[in-house]
Write a protein that binds this DNA or RNA. Structure first.
Lengths: 202, 202
DNA sequence: CACTAAAGTGAAACATGTTTCACTTTGGCT
DNA sequence: AGCCAAAGTGAAACATGTTTCACTTTAGTG
């Protein structure tokens, strides 16, 4: 996450506030610009679109998760416990600001190719965190050096399930609690499968 | 899937054509209405929004998948093979019209609560298909009666992974081939985990 | 056939994301 | 201080999703 120049940060923070109050539609570009004290043209020199802005907000939220996670003791005796705890924390953190979370999810799922690099970065960071939770390492921005292919695969799949579960939550298909529960079940099955695969192949 | 009244069907078909040509943005409501030969007001009496329209298009695409799937011999000796084949077919079917698929995915992920019922229906149908592939049953719109909780869970999780993979494909994060490959790996791990869970619990 | 309610129409109006452009301000350099 | 390029500004214009509404057509009924 780059050091954000003050004007840019103000814009993103304005978007976060407006999104938290009224969701995606409440993030009106004119309002964001006014709230941040910049002209509309200035906004569009820094961000390609509304979605771009909200993905920038995601980077900020990820930073917050990173800080929270870095402080916390990373507890759990088993891989399953650690991973489940991690998703519990991440899910609660995100859904604490539900309207913001929904707005960001919508932006992420918009499929705009311009956003792909930022989204890939986010995926990478999340996958790294999951791997660290798996292994019980202290969280860090530095990815572990010796993550096995299997661990990486499982982490990636868990992240996919998490994303889909959040989108479902976002549409009102299920509750926050259900998201956490889904992650626990997914982790159980994937970790069992992983253990078996290790036994066979390695 | 209800029998669609002719005007409504024409509207959805127009949307499908426009979406396939130029993606989400090319589905302009004025154009859709003109193409379908109805007034804009008529359109808005039948659909709540652009997203609503595209989710209706999803229902049509699902019907097509259903027909394709019902014809085909459902081959594969193992659960893994059958499930992998199913996702291969479903993914190819969807991504054959990439712009349409992207447009639909965007609508589905919009998080609009008005769409939740239709989306839930789609999820239900997909999960049922996956269960049938798992068990090697001939595909049918009627859900199997005796799907175990574990089978239902695994089917649901695979569907989540599929959705997330498609969104990633939609953003250009990975190719169609990668989506299919991801499904194979996810199925391998989940089915192994499932087999273990069965051994333990039942 | 005459009537009525429901459906459709057409056009305008509105809301908001995005672009454009001529002008102004700012920050660093000599 | 004076200058220049980059950044910012403000306002208008544009594109397109959505709403509204007065009028017309259509289909079913007595």
């Amino acid at each position: 996450m780059d050091e954000l120049e003050s004007r840019t940060r103000r814009i993103v923070e304005s978007a976060v506030e407006l999104a938290e109050e009224g969701g995606f539609e409440a993030v009106r570009m004119r309002d964001v610009a006014a709230h941040a004290g910049v002209a509309l043209g200035t906004f569009y020199k820094r961000f390609k679109s509304k979605e771009d802005l909200l993905v920038a907000a995601l980077e900020i939220e990820l930073d917050k998760l990173a800080k929270k996670v870095a402080q916390k003791e990373f507890d759990g005796a088993t891989r399953l416990e650690r991973v489940t705890n991690f998703f519990d924390m991440a899910t609660k953190g995100l859904t604490r600001k539900p309207n913001l979370a929904r707005a960001i999810l919508r932006a992420v799922a918009s499929g705009d190719p311009d956003l792909t690099p930022k989204i890939a970065k986010f995926h990478g960071a999340m996958t790294a965190y999951i791997s660290q939770a798996l292994r019980g390492e202290r969280f860090s921005d530095e990815p572990s050096q010796d993550v096995t292919k299997l661990e990486a695969t499982v982490s990636f799949l868990m992240q996919q399930v998490w994303f889909a579960a959040l989108v479902g939550w976002s549409s009102g298909l299920h509750s926050r609690k259900t998201v956490v529960e889904q992650m626990r079940v997914a982790a159980e099955l994937l970790l069992r499968g992983m253990a078996e695969a290790q036994r066979d192949d390695g």
